[in-house]
């Protein structure tokens, strides 16, 4: 027995979604078929609305449905510090920490020559006019080789502009035991160690423009 063409089309479209294989797509298609018509219309409406209303913020390239994103249009955010991240999802992750009140800049990727991604494919050029002398730029790209390479590239680009460039710290997760830490993380944690006796770093709300705490090395 063959599936009706409309069901085949639905399965095919669902299986194009990331993380959805043909079997999952088939399950989802049957699940959708069982749902009331209004639920399906709501889902289709949400998909179309998201596609038509969402766009990238022209300043920081985060995803927004307004003219500018919430962070860029909030005057209470610290205008003296920009956190550079790879993807819009990273902004959400940092916001969840509640430790950062500055601005963002989303690159939408990392440098990867073998995948044809060079500086011109990332939102690097619009970052440069945003950086003023004395401003802090936190490079919060991933801790992969590609993330490190992108951070080093940006560092060489931004420091001549007078920016104070810092890199997010590497190290052990909170609550993690040394015994179970992998050797790479442990090595980075040791090389980036901090003196215990130094004055605690101020809370971001008090002084967000300050540079990174220097390592004893």
């Amino acid at each position: 027995m063959k599936y009706p063409p409309s069901l085949v089309a639905l399965i095919r479209e669902l299986s194009r979604l990331p993380g959805i294989g043909p079997k999952s797509a088939q399950r989802l298609a049957f699940h959708l078929f069982e749902q009331p018509r209004e639920d399906i219309e709501r889902l289709a409406g949400a998909l179309l609305a998201a596609k038509s209303e969402l766009h990238t913020c022209p300043v920081c390239f985060n995803i927004t449905d307004a003219e500018r994103c919430d962070v860029c249009s909030d005057p209470s955010r610290d205008q003296g510090v920009i956190c550079v991240v790879e993807e819009p999802g990273d902004v959400i992750a940092i916001e969840r920490s509640g430790e950062y009140r500055g601005l963002y800049h989303v690159l939408h990727g990392v440098l990867s020559p073998m995948n044809g991604v060079g500086p011109e494919r990332l939102h690097i050029r619009p970052l440069l006019p945003r950086v003023r002398e004395g401003m802090e730029v936190i490079l919060a790209t991933g801790t992969t080789v590609e993330g490190d390479a992108t951070a080093l590239y940006l560092q060489r680009l931004l420091e001549p502009l007078g920016a104070v460039v810092s890199r997010i710290a590497y190290g052990l997760p909170v609550g993690g035991a040394l015994e179970y830490a992998d050797e790479v993380t442990l090595g980075r944690a040791l090389s980036g160690r901090r003196r215990v006796s130094e004055t605690p770093a101020p809370r971001p709300q008090e002084n967000e423009g300050s540079g990174p705490t220097p390592s004893p090395q």
């Binding site: 440098l111 990867s112 020559p113 073998m114 080789v145 490190d148 390479a149 080093l152 060489r156």
Partner: peptide, 16 residues
């Protein structure tokens, strides 16, 4: 050090 900008693209070329 392969992440350094002056080395990174060459390492990618070798891998590719």
């Amino acid at each position: 050090r392969l992440a350094e900008p002056e080395r990174y693209a060459f390492a990618h070329l070798m891998a590719e």
